[in-house]
Amino acid sequence: MIRVGPQDFDIGAEVRALTAGRTDIGAVVTFSGIVRDVPLELEHYPGMTEKELARIEAEAHRRWPLQASLILHRTGRLLPGDNIVLVIAASAHRQAAFEAASFLMDYLKTRAPFWKKEERNGEAHWVDARESDDEAMKKWE
């Protein structure tokens, strides 16, 4: 499942929603990202964002035996301490869930069309992409 928008999320509520009524899920791994240091504005490419996240999610389901998954990304202006991203991978056993959650984040970081603009010392500037994120993605190739 994919969700993109300004609304905040509650990790517990999202896990409960994803696993409600299921008896085939034995492992749930969540990753949540939080805004650090300074306020930021999240721009994205409406339309492609949802498609790209769906492609990333489908690829994770192709590689691991996942029972359910969620990728949730917030947009708009966010403050330090705010939630920004949530990935949930649910499987019968933990290894697939751990690996899939890590894969989903590495791919999201390098392929999902989001751009952060930070406000630092009264000036707004676009965040540069990190080479370490590209390196992290390569291990899945």
Binding site: G33, L42, H44, Y45, M48, H73, I84, V85, M105, L108, K109, T110, R111, A112, P113, F114, W115, K116, W126, V127, D128, A129, R130, D133
Partner: peptide, 10 residues
């Protein structure tokens, strides 16, 4: 067709 910098979400 869309043009943009390397992405920085997450």
């Amino acid at each position: 067709i869309a043009f943009f910098p390397p992405v920085t979400g997450g």
